[in-house]
Design a protein around this nucleic acid. Structure first.
Lengths: 184, 184
DNA sequence: GATCGCATGTAAGTGGTTACATGATTTA
DNA sequence: TAAATCATGTAACCACTTACATGCGATC
């Protein structure tokens, strides 16, 4: 049966990288691609169910080391084909909804300091995100020597780095400009 | 009555900038903030209905110059207060879902050229977006002298420019790297 | 003995998209 | 007279989010 959701493809892809549980998936996603993709548990578990019903993934029997409820999944041959087919198809456009930008856009309707505070939060957030991503990047770089796929995974992180740095630079520009507004 | 959706706030904000119709709204949004926000007609018209029922906007009687079905809206005093209050509140985080990045992330499961083609599409898309945004930016810059709010609107475009340029640079890096992959 | 992390799921709600439906006016 | 643009709306769907529910194991 065809027509998986994006969430399902994301999960299928991760299981092709390495077999793991729903819980692992959540933490892998949060800990590496969170800046351009996220999933909640309530998406993951139903997705695993659907994927296994479609024979795209199968459960791995684990010598459960004291974790009785843990269920590990891996992709099937069919699943791998489905994945590579999806990767080959045209990507659908990204529609972002950036609330911070919208608030800046309507900045004229509030006090100058209000916009300033919002942009400072945004800057602080991105400084934090950048730090996290730099750590991730180092880890993936270390794995590049042995793991083929790690090259592609590192590339995506590189875009994150570029975008976060650009965003922080933008915040600095804006903060400076706001301070200079008619306040000579 | 409280608790507007983000879409409704976006529309309320635009009507505070300048009175216009639902149709105008759609084209204003597409033609200026599309890179970080978008709305469809099927969001806009119900939103206008709800906003007017909540007395946040009101219909402007126009001397209809041959356009009988055209309905123009403006914000009320209550609407302006609601807007500035919303702008002042903490922004909620942006969760992006970038399908292109996900496909690159799983690039190891397809031929090198497949990823290459995807990234080239992404590059072409962003070159186009950048051109469009540069035009918009010039227009907003021209308006800055007379219009107070235009300063903030220009700022948001500046982030778009920075991010698009960073993205194009990233695409170039990736394309070069892919070509160099074990292909000495 | 209590709290925290591990671990898996369900149920309800909703914001937003896709598709549908209609009609006037301008341009080719 | 045909097509494109202007213009407004409704209905159905669904993907994703929020909240809820449960229980084991390890640490403090």
């Amino acid at each position: 049966m065809n027509g998986l959701t994006r969430a399902e493809y994301a999960i299928l892809g991760w299981l092709a990288v390495r077999p793991m549980s729903g819980y692992d998936l959540k933490h892998q996603i949060d800990g590496s691609i969170a800046f351009f993709w996220n999933e909640g548990f309530s998406t993951i578990y139903p997705a695993l169910k659907r994927l296994s019903e479609a024979n795209l993934i199968s459960e791995v029997v684990t010598d459960d080391d004291g974790h009785p409820s843990r269920r590990v999944w891996k992709t099937t041959a069919l699943g791998n084909r489905e994945l590579s087919q999806w990767v080959s198809q045209p990507y659908s456009p990204t529609h972002t909804r950036n609330e911070l930008l919208l608030k800046v856009f309507f900045g004229a309707f509030v006090e100058r300091d209000v916009v300033r505070a919002q942009v400072e939060s945004y800057r602080a957030e991105h400084v934090r995100l950048l730090q996290q991503l730099e750590e991730i990047c180092q880890q993936v770089r270390a794995r590049q020597a042995t793991d083929d796929g790690a090259v592609y995974r590192r590339m995506t992180s590189d875009l994150g780095l570029k975008v976060f740095r650009a965003t922080i630079a933008w915040c600095d520009d804006v903060l400076r400009e706001i301070d200079d507004l008619e306040g000579g």
